[in-house]
């Protein structure tokens, strides 16, 4: 079904690309996407943790458990 293909296509495209991962709690993680699975578990490289828009932590590699993920975005915030 084409509606699903666009999701898997997106998932293939974003490997190795800089992404913003937003958690349900509002915390943002920026980094390079290593990989992603069906639970939306995510492995990131060069991760930066932003809480209330402020850089709080840097991690080399991180594993983010999928249940916390709100969305994965391919671009940097350009909003307010």
């Amino acid at each position: 079904m084409s509606r699903k293909e666009s999701l898997s296509q997106f998932i293939q495209q974003i490997h190795g690309r800089p992404v913003v991962v937003k958690l349900v709690s509002g915390v943002d993680y920026r980094g390079v996407l290593s990989c992603l699975d069906g639970y939306m578990n995510i492995a990131l490289e060069q991760t930066e943790e932003y809480i209330n828009g402020q850089l709080k932590n840097k991690y080399g590699d991180t594993f983010i458990r999928g249940n916390n993920v709100l969305y994965i975005s391919t671009q940097k915030r350009r909003g307010v």
Partner: peptide, 22 residues
């Protein structure tokens, strides 16, 4: 995408090109 969050400081708006939403 436009994301609308209500925060103690008021409504926060974020614009994003493309997202995979859980």
């Amino acid at each position: 995408v436009t994301e609308y969050e209500s925060t103690p400081e008021g409504r926060r708006i974020t614009k994003l090109d493309q997202i995979l939403l859980n």
